[in-house]
């Protein structure tokens, strides 16, 4: 009787070890697989990307528009102080666009999760906060009397809507991309989701850069027309 009991205990012991072995092997392999999936890179040739080239051209054009301004020769209706402020703001924005992360893009063809995340956060800090919100949000949310020029006044609500939509979009990109550490049974579907999320986050962020550069170009065109 005692021997049978001992045999049963032994069987239970081996069963528990077997289950633990299977469970830990599953977790070990799953973690390897998840780490491998996350380290997959997205291949994008930025130099040949139309959107990237368009942004670079827009910024070059903005720079050209504000370069020709000579405050001494201006005799228009808009107060000189307002124009000088606008010129300074546009200049700050072009500098923000030429930030390190954005300029480094053209030298690269492979992007990992960490790179894309940095690219997206860089947009939030440099372009959205440093340029659009700090420089132009007050202009876009002013009631009307503060803006001396009618065309800028009509442009202000459009600017506001765009800035607010970009705040939402960039927050969405980053927050949806954060949770790449959650994994369960890895299927082809989740693999594709992880991979596609990286690719989508990159293009969405690039499109936000594009949208911002378009806004700047609009403002700089108005500035150029007013000054010349």
């Amino acid at each position: 009787m005692k021997n049978i009991l001992l045999e049963y205990i032994k069987i239970i012991g081996y069963t528990v070890v077997g289950l633990v072995f299977a469970y830990s092997a599953f977790y070990f392999i799953l973690n390897f697989h998840h780490a491998k999936e996350l380290s997959r890179t997205v291949s994008i040739n930025v130099k040949e990307n139309d959107m990237y080239n368009k942004i670079a051209n827009n910024i070059a054009e903005v720079k050209g528009n504000i370069a020709g301004f000579n405050s001494g020769k201006y005799h228009g209706n808009v107060p000189l102080g307002f124009l000088l402020t606008m010129s300074g703001k546009l200049e700050i924005c072009t500098r923000q666009f030429e930030n390190e992360t954005f300029m480094q893009l053209q030298d690269r063809t492979e992007f990992g999760a960490q790179d894309i995340y940095q690219f997206a956060t860089s947009f939030q800090s440099s372009i959205l906060n440093g340029c659009l919100i700090q420089q132009f949000y007050d202009l876009s949310s002013s009631t009307g009397n503060e803006i001396p020029d009618a065309s800028v006044r009509s442009f202000a609500p459009f600017l506001k809507t765009n800035i607010e939509s970009m705040i939402d979009s960039s927050s969405y990109i980053i927050s949806s991309y954060h949770y790449n550490n959650i994994y369960y049974f890895t299927t082809d579907l989740t693999n594709n989701t992880l991979y596609n999320r990286s690719s989508q986050a990159f293009y969405k962020t690039l499109s936000l850069y594009d949208k911002s550069s378009d806004l700047l170009l609009e403002l700089s065109n108005w500035f150029k027309n007013e000054v010349n």
């Binding site: 830990s24 070990f28 780490a35 960490q114």
Partner: peptide, 29 residues
């Protein structure tokens, strides 16, 4: 069998700890 299972379990725990500290692709980090 017991010794191999112990090694596997402890290796898994160590690996997860390593990933939580050093894996840069985990973006919440």
């Amino acid at each position: 069998f017991y010794n191999i299972t112990c090694c596997l379990v402890f290796a898994t725990i160590t690996y997860c700890g390593y990933r939580a500290i050093f894996d840069e692709n985990l973006l919440l980090r």
